Amino acid sequence: MTLSDEEIAEIRHEMGLYENPQAASIEALKVVQQHRGWVSDEALAAAAEVVGVSVAAMESVATFYNLIFRRPVGRHVIMVCDSVSCYLCGYDGVKAHLTESLGIDYGETTPDERFTLLPICCLGDCDNAPSMRVGEDYHGRLTSERIDEVLARYE
């Protein structure tokens, strides 16, 4: 597998922003994910080659950064905050409602490939706990009714 000319150009642009081009490893992975929705083993290896790092080094970056998806995900990734603040403010009910409504558990994608459900240790949205993120959108002060409203927006 090779990266597209556009992906390579974007990665090289990111590399130019750093004194050490290898520091752009995370940005290279973000570029690939933006184009493909996730980062396959083959795409990771191709990005490592462009950046000039070993596949193992690139893999260590990809597995450390929890916003790089290493397998296919749905059109909308739901990240449910399970921090202490969210836990104390109703996390259990949020998780239960989401898993029941979507028919999936953490790490799974709905059969229509609409949603993937993932936990995240903190969204930094504690004043709106419990909260979740759908794509780039944050949703807080969640109740069952509010969750249903939010999910309906992402048809």
Rank of each mutant, 00 (worst) to 15 (best):
M15H: 06
C126R: 04
F64R: 15
G74S: 01
P21K: 12
C86Q: 04
A47R: 02
Y18R: 15
V32Q: 03
P72Q: 15
D148S: 09
D125K: 13
D127S: 15
P130H: 01
A57L: 10
D112W: 11
Y138Q: 05
A152Y: 03
L118M: 14
R36W: 04
G74L: 03
H97S: 10
Y18G: 04
G135S: 07
I78E: 02
G140Q: 01
L3E: 08
M132R: 02
Y106L: 08
S144C: 10
I11F: 05
S54A: 11
A28P: 00
F69E: 11
V39E: 05
E113D: 11
E49M: 11
S25N: 05
C86A: 06
I120G: 01
R141C: 15
R153P: 00
Y65H: 13
E149G: 03
G74T: 07
D82R: 11
H97C: 13
I78M: 02
N66Y: 12
T116F: 05
R70P: 01
V134S: 06
D127Y: 09
A47Q: 01
Y87V: 07
E27F: 07
L17T: 00
G103C: 07
A62G: 04
R36H: 09
V55R: 13
T116M: 06
G135Y: 00
I26H: 12
V134Y: 00
I147E: 00
V150P: 13
D92W: 04
A45G: 12
T143N: 02
V73W: 01
E10S: 06
H13T: 13
S144W: 07
D5T: 14
K95W: 07
H97N: 14
H97W: 11
E27T: 03
A46K: 05
A43P: 10
A62R: 06
F64P: 00
A96D: 06
Y91E: 11
E108H: 03
R146I: 08
T99D: 11
I104K: 04
G16E: 03
F69D: 08
C86Y: 03
R114L: 11
C81F: 13
E27W: 04
V55C: 08
Y154L: 09
D127N: 14
S85T: 15
I120R: 04
D5I: 09
V73M: 10
K95M: 07
C126I: 08
C89D: 05
A57P: 00
T2Q: 10
A57H: 04
A24D: 03
M15F: 09
A57G: 06
D137S: 13
F69N: 10
E49F: 08
L3Q: 05
E59S: 14
A45H: 10
I8S: 05
R114I: 00
V31Y: 00
C81W: 02
D41K: 13
N128T: 05
P21C: 10
P21F: 14
D82T: 14
R133F: 02
E113A: 09
A47N: 02
L123G: 14
T116E: 03
E155A: 15
A152F: 02
M58S: 11
G52L: 01
Y87A: 15
A23G: 02
E145C: 11
A129K: 04
D137A: 14
S85N: 09
